[in-house]
Amino acid sequence: MKIRLLVLILVVAIGAVACSRRQPPVIAPAPAPAPPQAAATTPPPPPAPTRVEDALPVPSEPLGEDAIGNRTLDDLNRESPFKPVFFGEDSAELDDGGRSVVVENAGLLKKNSTWVVTVEGHCDERGTAEYNLALGERRAVAVKTYLVSLGVAPDRIRTVSYGKEFPFDTGHDEKAWTSNRRAQFVITAK
């Protein structure tokens, strides 16, 4: 309750700040320079000074909440009943080892029939940031497709790719890369 109140106060306060900082940003366009005049007999009137104004960005969204709810789910995920599925370099193919992990995880999902999971696709740092977002998506989808083929209902499995944004191992060697090329199961409802 206290926390909610705090969040509410914070949101209102930020709204107020956003309002008070709200100024129409005006950058006066610089007038075109006067054409050069050859030896005028009367001096031309001086040009008006150019107004220079700085435009300030205004936040377009309320401040996000700290993720402090979902404690029990987090505890569950920290114990991690699901094993991660690992992939080869630049590959979204499930190998024999990967398939057996997915079979194991499918068994857990069948045993806990109310659980909903998100399969996160992750990549090592050797690919580019942009391409890895797609590669991670392919890895997550490959796992979901196999889970569904094993009889898990598709609406219990969400997928998300984090590319190389969230490495499991922050090292820069083969060992780190191997453990970062993964599909990770996170329980999102139980």
Binding site: P24, V58, P59, S60, E61, L133, V160, Y162
Partner: peptide, 16 residues
């Protein structure tokens, strides 16, 4: 990823 999956947003930065 504010909704848990990647989606597109446009911030009109001077209008909030």
């Amino acid at each position: 990823y504010r909704r848990g999956y990647p989606d597109l947003f446009i911030a009109m930065i001077y209008q909030g």
